[in-house]
Design a binder for these strands. Structure first.
Length: 294
DNA sequence: AAGCAACCCAACCGCGGTTCC
DNA sequence: GGGAACCGCGGTTGGGTTGCT
């Protein structure tokens, strides 16, 4: 009766992911697409539980993720959507396609909550004339903005890749630095990666030469050919970020897709349209001023 | 330079709804 | 129909980094 167990609890690795594990996971997902997470550890040999694989992918490796430097506009949207939806981070994230729910949640907990609390207490103590949220945020030198990126964000990036884009470079460096090790991992220990390699590298040199060059591996990591596989593939961002476009400019249209695809997103088409409209920021801020939450 | 505190974020945990057998 | 596992979500935490004294 029922399904077989998700994964064995014994021998499951925890803690930070290594570049090698990322490679294996990315290779597998590139071939099979995200989903069916239960099969991922089994088929890749990763000593991770399916849940961990899914989280790693959705929060870090998924293409199109933008990290750090929340713009004032994004902050305004988060604040307003949080007021409307509560702590429904997944729903909020559906309106910010470049941000993960985890990122938004972290940003809310570490920045916005404190800021709003501070502002709220300040407003009680010394009533001040209405001031836009954007202006207020920019007035705080600890909050990173697009115009004045905080050193806090950039400097505190972990030594490991801080973005999907960087991961690609990092993986290439890894491949170059230890081709023998890389080949062993890609072929011997990882059947999926080996399959990928076989598929992508039919002319692999039999004499032990580098099976996947940096450029070729780059192409493996490119997710352009995955666009038909799943919904997130609609992102115009390549994994490498080379074709990165200003998603903010096309959020309105892309958001329609996000709304349709994400069942958790409430039917707020009027709202999202309004949110994404240029010049709506002032209205957002007005509502923020009126919101009892703040 | 060393010690301490605060900050940040990736990852884990637990729960509820959904899906499968 | 019922039990078991999967999946996704929100809350929380642990470890690394930075800034201050």
């Amino acid at each position: 009766m029922g399904r077989p167990p998700c994964c064995e609890k014994v021998g499951i690795k925890k803690g930070p992911w290594t570049p090698e594990e990322d490679i294996i996971l990315v290779s597998y997902i590139q071939q099979h697409g995200p989903g069916n997470w239960r099969s991922v550890p089994t088929n890749t040999g990763l000593l991770r539980c399916s849940k961990s694989c899914r989280l790693r992918w959705t929060n870090y490796l998924r293409p199109g993720i933008k990290r750090g430097n929340f713009t004032p506009h994004e902050e305004g949207m988060i604040i307003h959507l949080q007021a409307l939806l509560g702590n429904k981070w997944a729903a909020i994230a559906s309106y910010l396609p470049q941000r993960t729910d985890n990122d938004i949640k972290n940003y809310w907990n570490t920045h916005l909550k404190k800021k709003l609390k501070k502002l709220n207490s300040a407003a009680v103590d010394t009533p001040e004339p209405p001031e836009s949220a954007t202006t207020r945020f920019q007035s705080n030198d600890k909050v990173p903005t697009a115009d004045s990126p905080s050193s806090l964000v950039s400097n505190r990036a972990t030594t490991y890749a801080s973005s999907a884009e960087n991961i690609s470079r990092l993986l290439q460096a890894w491949m170059r630095s230890s081709p023998e090790e890389s080949r062993r991992k890609m072929s011997g220990e990882n059947s999926i990666a080996a399959a990928t390699q076989q598929q992508q590298q039919p002319k692999a040199e039999p004499d032990g030469g580098e099976l996947v060059s940096g450029e070729e591996f780059d192409s493996i990591l490119s997710f352009e050919n995955m666009k038909s596989v799943n919904s997130w593939g609609k992102s115009s961002l390549s994994y490498k970020g080379k074709e990165e476009v200003n998603v903010g400019e096309k959020q309105s249209s892309e958001n329609d897709d996000a709304t349709a695809e994400n069942a958790t997103a409430p039917p707020l088409s009027f709202l999202e349209k309004w949110l994404f409209e240029e010049g709506a920021a002032g209205q957002v801020e007005e509502m923020m001023e009126l919101s009892p939450v703040f």
